Amino acid sequence: MFEAMTYEAILEEMLSRVTNDVDKREGSIIYDALAPCAYELSQNYFNMDNFIDLVFGDTAVAEYLDRVVSDYGIVRKAATKAVRKVTVNREVPIGSRWGLETTTYKIISKLTDNTGEGASGSTGTYSYAAECEQTGEIGNHYSGTLVNIDNINDVNATLTDIITAGEEEENDDNLRSRFYTLVQSPSTSGNAFNYRKWALEVPGVGDAKIYPLWNGNGTVKVMIVDSSLSIDTSLEAKVYEHIEEVRPIGAAVTVTSPASKEIKISAKITLDGTKLLSEVSADFTAAVTEYLKGTIFEAYSISYAKIGSLLLSTRGVADYTDLLLNNGVTNIPIQDTQIPIAGAITLSGVN
């Protein structure tokens, strides 16, 4: 809107209003007096251009996007803490703290799969749920031997399975997508748009697909993926509980996760000399992963031609031959209850 209001344009306009019998050359008194003012005015016009972007849903970012969507009752999902399984050789107190790498964990409950016997303190195998004290995905990353922070002696503790994955704070793209889902979709009276909206309200859920009347009248299936568009079955119960709280009376709801369809890729490539084979393979794998995520709940096949196009457009690739998807040269069909995931990607160089 204010693109024309540059420093040079403003200064020229200001100098044009000074009579010609006054020295207006650079370095003159009037020039030096007006130049700082013109600069500050150009900065204000630049900020005004940006401020306009910050009040609309398609361009607002960070706290400004929060304020836009809050008018519609939408709140950014907060980061959550991972809950992990900890196995120990004897019982430990609830609330005890443990560390591994840059993370710390607090024991919050005892699990049922324990083989320890006898009085408290006897040896065996005990399992506990431990909550990461750091929020976000960092709590999902590490596994291995834990170090006790509370000076409990003679205990061997190991951090193993993820019970509930930690999630980062909802990013702008996901929040904007939920905003568009609300304002652009006619979600009323418990229709399919409503169920998708309710599913997306649960922290950790990245997308959802709704199957009305999937098992007869009064039935609804909700299929979900997490915020990284991957399968996380631990979210199913949370989504089910939330929908049960808000849905209309009468519907039987089933919440499930899709099955994975592995896409294996192999090809022979000719390098153009700008990148190593390992670098090309890493870049191509990243491009394929991004493409597959974009097809989730949208496409019913993975395009052989698209994969070839991604390979040819990867920096460092001059040409390719013998491209195979799951050992074939055709599109890979994806059922509506499946999502594609990248399997083994094997690129071999040829002279």
Rank of each mutant, 00 (worst) to 15 (best):
S109D: 12
G166L: 01
N327V: 05
T6V: 12
V68E: 07
R196N: 00
V55W: 06
A305I: 00
S309A: 08
T123D: 03
S227N: 14
S309P: 00
Y195H: 01
E167A: 10
I332E: 11
S227E: 08
A252T: 15
A62K: 01
S120M: 05
G328W: 02
E63V: 14
K197D: 08
V350L: 12
T103D: 04
A157F: 09
K197M: 12
T19V: 14
L182K: 15
V239G: 05
Y7D: 06
Q335H: 06
S228H: 08
N327K: 11
L324Y: 10
P258G: 11
A60T: 10
Y7M: 07
K306D: 03
Y300F: 06
D154I: 08
V202W: 00
L277H: 09
Y320E: 01
I249T: 11
G121Y: 05
A208F: 04
Y45V: 07
F297N: 09
A33F: 08
Y211F: 13
R178G: 08
E12Y: 03
D49R: 13
N20I: 14
L310D: 06
S303T: 01
I107D: 00
L312F: 07
T289D: 15
E236Q: 15
I108V: 15
L229F: 15
S348R: 08
T164Q: 02
K209W: 00
L65D: 01
E63A: 13
S228W: 00
I263T: 12
S187L: 10
I163T: 03
G124E: 03
R97L: 09
T112V: 12
D150S: 08
T123A: 05
I152A: 11
